[in-house]
C-alpha cells in the first residue's frame, strides 16, 4: 500500500482544528501551552461552542492566546482574569466564559481574584497552566516552584526560610463551596492529552450548565525555563512535579 493511498481526505483521523488559526504560536518548542490551546480549539469546534465562547487571557506567556484561537477574547491585567470573567458571565449568562492563566497570574498576583471568584461560585471555567516558573519574564520563581528548584531568582534552589513553600492552589480552591469541579491533569503523553481534553470539556459544560466554578490545572513543563529539552522536561515533571502536584480529580460534584 502506497503512502498516497493512505493520505486521502476520507482517511484523515486527526488534524489541526480550524479554530486554531494558522498564525505560528510564539511559544518555545515543546511548550505545553500549545497543546492546551489546541485542546481548547478542538473542544470549541467539536461542540460547536466557538460562537458563544469568550476567553480571558492572562499576563504571562499566554498573553497572546487571543492571537491563536479564533473566538472573542479580552486580555486582562495581571491576575485579574477571574474578575473580568465574573462580570462577563454575569452579564451574558448564555456564554461559555473561561480564563486561561499561568501560575504567576493565578496563584501569585491573582490569588485573591481566583479564590473569591471560585468562592462566589461564578459559572466560569479556569484553565490553569502550572509549570512552576515565570516563563515570560525569563524563568523566575513562581509560587508553585518546587523546593530546591533553581530559577533566575532562586539561583541556588528554592529555600523554605527565604521563599516559603510551593503553593498547591487547586487544593485550596477545591475546599471552597463555590467550586464544583477541580482537577489536575497533564499533557505529556497521548493518554494524558485525552484525559485533559475530557477534563476541559467537563469544565466548559459546567460553565454552560451554571454549576459553579471549574478549575482545570494542567501540570506543565517549561523546558526553556527549566533549561532542559522538551522530552527531558516531561521526564523531570513526572519525577518531581507529580509528587507535589498529583494528577487526578480533587473535586467533582
Amino acid at each position: 500500500m502506497e503512502i498516497n493511498d493512505i493520505i486521502k481526505p476520507e482517511n484523515c483521523v486527526y488534524k489541526k482544528p480550524t479554530l486554531l488559526n494558522d498564525t505560528n504560536m510564539h511559544y518555545c518548542p515543546g511548550c505545553s501551552h500549545g497543546v492546551v490551546h489546541k485542546l481548547i480549539a478542538e473542544i470549541l469546534e467539536e461542540k460547536g461552542w466557538g460562537d458563544k465562547a469568550i476567553g480571558v487571557s492572562p499576563v504571562g506567556c499566554a498573553v497572546f492566546a487571543y492571537k491563536y484561537v479564533d473566538i472573542d477574547w479580552v486580555e486582562a491585567a495581571h491576575g485579574r482574569a477571574p474578575a473580568l470573567a465574573t462580570a462577563i458571565k454575569r452579564l451574558q449568562p448564555d456564554k461559555l466564559v473561561f480564563t486561561y492563566q499561568g501560575d504567576g497570574d493565578l496563584a501569585a498576583i491573582g490569588t485573591g481574584e481566583t479564590i473569591h471568584a471560585a468562592n462566589r461560585g461564578e459559572n466560569i471555567a479556569i484553565i490553569f497552566i502550572n509549570n512552576a516558573i515565570y516563563g515570560m519574564t525569563g524563568g523566575q520563581m513562581a509560587p508553585t516552584t518546587l523546593l530546591g528548584m533553581k530559577t533566575a531568582t532562586t539561583p541556588y534552589g528554592r529555600r523554605v526560610d527565604l521563599n516559603g513553600y510551593p503553593l498547591a492552589i487547586s487544593e485550596l480552591v477545591a475546599h471552597l463551596d463555590g467550586s464544583c469541579y477541580v482537577t489536575r491533569q497533564s499533557v505529556h503523553t497521548p493518554a494524558a492529552v485525552r484525559k485533559a481534553k475530557a477534563a476541559i470539556i467537563h469544565a466548559f459544560e459546567n460553565s454552560m450548565a451554571g454549576k459553579g466554578t471549574s478549575l482545570v490545572e494542567i501540570v506543565s513543563t517549561c523546558n526553556a525555563g527549566w533549561k532542559m529539552t522538551p522530552a527531558q522536561a516531561n521526564d523531570w515533571m513526572v519525577e518531581h512535579m507529580f509528587k507535589k502536584y498529583p494528577i487526578g480529580d480533587l473535586k467533582n460534584e
Binding site: V74, A83, L84, A85, T86, A87, R90, Q92, G112
Partner: peptide
C-alpha cells in the same frame, strides 16, 4: 447585575470585563 466584589481591584476589573462586552 450588582456584585459586591472582594476589593476595588476586583471591582474595576469586573468593570473592565463588563465594558468589554459593550455593557
Amino acid at each position: 447585575v450588582v456584585v459586591q466584589a472582594e476589593s476595588e481591584l476586583a471591582s474595576i476589573n469586573m468593570v473592565y470585563g463588563g465594558a468589554a462586552c459593550g455593557k
